[in-house]
Nucleic acid binder design. Structure first.
Lengths: 132, 132
DNA sequence: TTAATAATGTTATATTATTACATAGTGTTA
DNA sequence: TAACACTATGTAATAATATAACATTATTAA
């Protein structure tokens, strides 16, 4: 069952749910939503989430403990992620900006550590909320 | 008691502990460490942490659910934070780089949202771990 | 077809964080 | 100094997030 699209049954169910969602989903929200599909326990959800994060199909928004589908074909296996988060409506958007991505991927700091990966979260008030 | 340095008793105890530490501390690690000083329950710790984060004395490392003292006089009230995290030894360093900070503070993306704040976490293997 | 690997199912438990409510300390100002 | 608003504290209970451990089944590759 794995080969066709390289997602397993549980992974596919959970990916589909996250992918359809317009907002980040939390692990237990996912759990409650997929119980009718036979996924009954936290480890089943967390295992699928771990795998999906690992393969870059989804990202974890660390400041929210929530997950979004990857919308950015450029972020290979989640090496370089950036998000904009509205502090009012909680909307999260993945930022896809080549210049930003390149700037950060090339960044090296004084202590000489070579970075393999980064995650950037911007916070503010989105256009829509500003109007209200 | 507040006025002298504008940290309350619990805030000062918890800040001192984090500030002395060479590594990020987790809330319950802090709780266990300060029980002899009369701080006995999670809300006492979380309240102090919230306040310290709010005032920029400490930062939360979101990917680790842990807290470090601010080493950077430039990051006013935690508006612009960047960290380097070693995936091997788990060492966390606050990055203080004016150019990076300015680049990100000035960043605006297409959708027109104005950012007030950001948090950036870089991951890699530090110099010391590379040698081993 | 066997062995290795990946995925699943299940129970229990660990870790992280908040709610709710009662009490006490501090700063302001009338 | 009395009254007030505000901040901080103490405490019990519980909510939310995440993992450990172990048994079983499915998939792939040799």
């Amino acid at each position: 069952m794995y080969k066709e699209n390289n997602l397993s049954k549980n992974q596919q169910i959970i990916f589909d749910l996250i992918n359809k969602s317009s907002e980040p989903l939390k692990a237990y929200t996912i759990l409650f939503s997929v119980q009718k599909k036979g996924i009954k326990a936290p480890p089943q959800v967390y295992r699928a989430l771990d795998k999906l994060v690992e393969t870059g199909k989804i990202h974890k928004i660390e400041s929210k403990n929530a997950f979004v589908a990857c919308r950015n074909s450029d972020c290979e296996i989640s090496k370089a992620t950036a998000f904009s988060i509205c502090e009012s409506c909680e909307t999260v958007d993945e930022i896809s900006d080549m210049k930003l991505s390149k700037y950060l991927s090339d960044f090296n700091h004084k202590k000489g550590m070579k970075f393999k990966r980064f995650n950037l979260e911007f916070f503010g008030i989105c256009k829509k909320c500003k109007k209200d």
